[in-house]
Design a protein around this nucleic acid. Structure first.
Lengths: 339, 339
DNA sequence: CTGAAAGCGCTAACAT
DNA sequence: ATGTTAGCGCTTTCAG
């Protein structure tokens, strides 16, 4: 069943059918109704590939997401879906596999779907601004902060300052009277958020006149998936069994904090009485742990809105590249004790 | 940059370029290398819409997923991604929005991408087998058990028997000596899994000579999202404040059990000493709650593999429709006390 | 307001 | 081994 068949069935030309489908103003309402009826009856569905091939421009933007299993992204994705509805562009969500090259996929989709712009969620940690520029349509990277990338003219990104927010988390612990603070850090060779959050931790210690103790830095296990509860659990167990004296724990992700909870409780310690815990991200479930987890909440809604706003600005007004850094919110709950 | 441009640049015909791109055996390796080099240099990317328009058949199957924010699906999705890699078909993941009609989307994609088959994850609760049959390519519904749908010839589905597994969960509670068992159930008007799991609960009570007490059935709150920790929290609070005597709690989803944990602990009760809790689904995080949550684990890996197997069977051998029902696994952990 | 016709970029016969 | 050509199903001038 093609447009031709419908045309024949209706005794009209195919362009008239096309007009009916595409809400073209210049068509007799009666003809249109008649055609639409036949289309309905015949269960005809236009072939999108053919349409995409022909059209010169679409009003489509895409959201690429790498790491659909990242719970932090899931919350963000939800907000995106909600916000993108409000926009005059149609959108498409493209989950990219861990080992897949999103730049390549982007190029492909831009061609075949005539994309107007792209938002990248996750991935692209190491990619240069030039590469992004080479994509040809405006791109904004959401929640990716990589200070190693120098900005180019049309580089858009929204993120938090990982170093500063980690600093704030640890500083908060210090101000609560803690001075034996451990960190559940990233992998040893991490140069991205894991590294930056560790930097923030160290600086906070310095500024609070607390000596840095390498024994209180637990690096992520290489043999377990990154940023998971499982890893946090193993790391915390390692810490607890090392006998290192600790009154508070900064986990660089909430998931890891959940793992830490488990390890701490298993050892019979109480949170926050024996060990205080602070997380990072502001996951939905932080409220539903006991005690509820104090955490640095990322301003997801703001970041999502900014991402969309920047992309539309770039598309519609050709605005200049911009790095927008948002402030996280310290969500004080019940997992940190004031000494 | 089109195939034509590449052809001109290489001084060959476009079909030769096409052959180079598509690994056609009948092409001089040197020519091919030369063309590929130019393609590389020029950053040429074939237009997929044009290709899809032209090709008669693809070897693509699609995974439609409705409810990307459902944590249970996330685990499944992960397994799917892993398993689909091993298959001789290429695949595509299509997240469908809550309000979107997946049947329509399916029809569209089948046309434009020449899909060979589809696996539906979530959604389609109410859809008839006939509708599915009308889609034209084999479809398998994964994790959707709806006894109201009568099977048609080419109806494929894999699921668990919600009624039976709920029965087993509650029966386990009974065998542990509990007779004051509450259920965190689905919405009042639920006719799907919520209803079936409630049925299983009631039957288990009957078979264990326990009187049914309506006060021990808490229906999901209408004003809160379904199956969430938040809802489970509110429901459990309601239960606890009602003064109803309860020694064990069956939550029809793990997320709701997480919410229940929170409510129970807030009231100062201990799990499992004061109240035992059993969940349903077997989420990753059940291990990382304290105490770890006893739950009816859905056999995700088996279900995923079966889904793929059935779909390929239908595609390759035109096999008959089939409803495959798997058994859940009672994962005994630390949240249920033997009285 | 409607129809005819020219491609969009590509693949797949069919020739050479 | 390579080139030529006819469409795939649709949108979009351009005429009527």
């Amino acid at each position: 069943m093609t447009i031709k068949d419908i045309a024949r069935l209706c005794n009209v030309g195919i362009s008239t059918v096309s007009r009916a489908i595409n809400d073209d103003p210049g068509i007799n309402p009666e003809t249109k109704a008649r055609i639409l009826k036949v289309i309905e009856e015949q269960n005809y569905i236009p072939n999108n590939s053919a349409r995409n091939l022909k059209i010169v421009e679409s009003n489509t933007i895409a959201l690429f997401i790498k790491g659909t299993d990242n719970p932090f992204f899931q919350g963000i994705l939800r907000i995106f879906e909600q916000e993108l509805q409000k926009v005059e562009y149609s959108y498409l969500i493209y989950p990219v596999a861990e080992n897949q090259d999103e730049t390549q996929a982007a190029l492909e989709l831009i061609k075949s779907r005539k994309l107007k712009g792209i938002i990248f969620l996750g991935g692209l940690m190491e990619v240069s601004g030039e590469t992004l520029d080479g994509i040809g349509v405006p791109c904004v990277r959401c929640t990716v902060s990589n200070p190693n990338i120098k900005a180019v003219e049309r580089d858009f990104s929204v993120s938090i300052d990982d170093r500063r927010e980690a600093y704030r988390a640890v500083d908060y612990l210090c101000r609560c009277g803690h001075d034996k603070i451990a960190i559940l850090a990233g992998r040893r060779q991490d140069h991205s958020i894991g590294y930056m959050r560790l930097q923030g931790y160290r600086q906070a210690l310095v500024d609070n006149d607390i000596a840095f103790d390498p024994a209180r830095v637990i690096y992520m296990r290489e043999d377990i998936a990154e940023f998971t509860a499982e890893n946090g659990y193993a790391m915390t167990k390692e810490l607890l069994e090392s006998g290192t004296n600790v009154t508070a724990l900064f986990a660089i992700s909430d998931m890891m904090a959940f793992g830490a909870y488990k390890a701490i409780k298993e050892k019979g310690y109480r949170i926050p009485d024996d060990i205080s815990v602070i997380g990072f991200d502001g996951l939905y479930l932080t409220k539903f742990y006991h005690p509820s987890l104090t955490t640095m909440g990322q301003p997801c809604e703001k970041m999502v809105k900014a991402s969309i706003e920047m992309l539309l600005g770039a598309i519609n007004e050709g605005s200049q590249g911009e790095q927008r850094i948002f402030q996280a919110e310290l969500i004080e709950r019940d997992s940190v004790k004031r000494l």
